[in-house]
Write a protein that binds this DNA or RNA. Structure first.
Lengths: 341, 341
DNA sequence: CTGTTAGCGCTTTCAG
DNA sequence: CTGAAAGCGCTAACAG
């Protein structure tokens, strides 16, 4: 063996590797980046030199010249909005498999912060951008278009995507829940919802399908159990004889269930409750929570695929994907006769 | 005004900005990076040129030369482990205020993955590294030390940190819960725990303080409500007359509560339950969940401060911080007399 | 306060 | 299959 890792000198560069392997700089580069076009013997020597020197490639330098950072930016309202975690998870994994890393940024539901975050991301030269939700401001829209990298908006659908979009109609989700309650004979219904754009769109869909306005408790995002309890209190004060509540998240629904229990209301006999998001806990609680399932992991997987394809110069056949949703009926609404008996 | 943003040509470089402002490249650079040492008039002209050209700095290029990426790597087991989110949140905010961005990596509780993630991060030249938990493998340890950037391990405490450490003793947490149950007269206790290192350390502390071995249901990470239900089933099968369960997370405790209700056990009269982490939902449920609180946000804030100080060449007075913890008694254990009455 | 020069570490040309 | 030269966009170092 030649020189091993020096105790604590400067980190090895590709130059050091090349010298240790007795090849030129560029050959070392190719042995690592495009092993197919290098002879096997050379490749092995370079590999050995990498081990010996403890070489770690510098992606800043590589990216500067190649204009490919092998990094994708992921923008979400906040990490604490657990709805997005499965999407972020599968996105991370799918990108990793393709040799990309995900860098997350949070907007906190604020259009100005969104633009700042996008600017910060842009300065790191991402190869693609995945948004959880649609782009908020016109300013951000233009910024994204000017960047010239593939953009995927997720968790919503629109006629006017910045580039590509994968999601479902929040309006349709709201309508489906309204239709479900009506089919069960519910007459006096309330809505407990977060204040974010998508949740309010679901509310709009609910009201449209319901046919008339619906008492609504709007709570600040991110939603929590405490806010769910509070929301039910408000709704009961405004709508005596309330029979059902549609919630904008399963955690909010959980809070509604707790508050209902605290007030001696039986669920679903006295009060039916539906959530959104199909969180893990909702399936196993007593009562289990009726909810709307959307395929979060698939959105992440597909977003990664589209970004990677575009980075490789391919043009995906479609630019918009409506993945739909599924209402899952559980105990919180599924008791025998509806309320008011 | 001079030339505005060309429709869709190449993105503007600092060179373009300098020319538009009629100054040299380096002056433009300084006007943006060290505005204090540039005359106000020049600064204003450069600023105007930035607007006119739509310039976005290229941090890859800047970082390559200055050897400061203005990026910090954050390593956690998985985003779905919600215990860490408050820490990640405050870390993100505190770093942002200091002009740094956080890049997250997940290890999935796997030492090999940990090392891969660290290698991937290292190739992006982070200015610092924050670990949620202690470094797992000796290999990763060495890698981190060789990197030569400040490292903060959090959410645990050790005599032998890689560099700096901010956390608390999991052993002591377990012991405190055991002492608490004993003081309440509990005799037959069980443990429901995730399989991760820290949770098992809390178990060790519990057993040590309890004085003899304790029936334990170990469930795979990440913990969930369903696993909590399952764990109580196992414990009841193995320990007839079980009076109390210590859980390694509030979500597991939630599951234990649900299973207890399903079996007609009253909490806390028939079964006392304690969790860990002080999750939001635990405070507002019925019964509310007794838990152990640790200051997640403070760990993030302090970690950011230490990293930033070290990046500025300062040497913090201390390299280890034990932030302690607090047992919060709530309804799930606080009923009148303990079980067995 | 401003400018010139050099070069970070790597990959893209273009030649063998 | 391998190599030499050039330069990505920016900032440190040293002048003025």
């Amino acid at each position: 063996m030649t020189a091993a890792t020096p105790p604590s000198s400067k980190p090895a560069t590709l130059h050091d590797v090349a010298r240790a392997a007795g090849v030129s700089l560029i050959t070392a580069s190719r042995a690592l980046g495009q092993p197919a076009i290098v002879s096997e013997a050379t490749r092995a020597r370079v590999q050995a030199a990498v081990e010996a020197t403890g070489y770690i490639p510098n992606l800043l330098a590589g990216g500067l010249k190649s204009r490919r950072s092998r990094m994708v930016a992921g923008i979400l309202p906040a990490l604490s909005v657990s709805q997005f975690l499965p999407t972020v998870q599968s996105l991370t994994v799918a990108l990793h498999e393709a040799g990309y890393q995900l860098m997350l940024g949070q907007t906190f539901y604020d259009a100005v912060r969104e633009d700042e975050v996008l600017a910060a991301m842009a300065s790191r030269q991402p190869d693609g951008i995945v948004m959880m939700g649609l782009v908020q401001s016109e300013r951000s829209r233009e910024r994204l278009q000017r960047l010239g990298v593939p953009v995927v908006e997720t968790w919503d659908i629109t006629d006017r995507p910045v580039d590509m979009v994968i999601g479902f109609s929040h309006h349709a989700v709201g309508a489906a829940v309204a239709d479900y309650f009506r089919a069960r004979g519910v007459e006096r219904v309330g809505i407990a919802t977060g204040s974010d754009h998508r949740a309010l769109q679901r509310r709009d869909g609910f009201v449209a399908a319901w046919g008339r306005d619906v008492p609504t408790a709007i709570v600040p995002a991110p939603s929590s159990l405490a806010l769910g309890r509070q929301a039910l209190g408000e709704l009961l004060a405004r709508q005596p004889g309330l029979q059902a509540v549609a919630c904008s998240s399963d955690m909010l629904a959980h809070g509604v269930l707790v508050e209902a229990a605290a007030r001696g209301l039986r669920v679903p006999q006295d009060l039916a409750v539906a959530g959104f998001g199909n969180a893990e806990f909702g399936e196993h609680m007593l009562p289990s929570i009726t909810t709307v399932h959307v395929d979060g992991p698939e959105m992440g997987r597909l977003a990664a695929q589209l970004i990677v394809q575009r980075c490789q110069g391919q043009v995906p056949e479609r630019a918009a994907f409506d993945l739909g949703f599924r209402l899952i009926e559980r105990q919180s609404t599924a008791g025998g006769a509806p309320a008011g008996s």
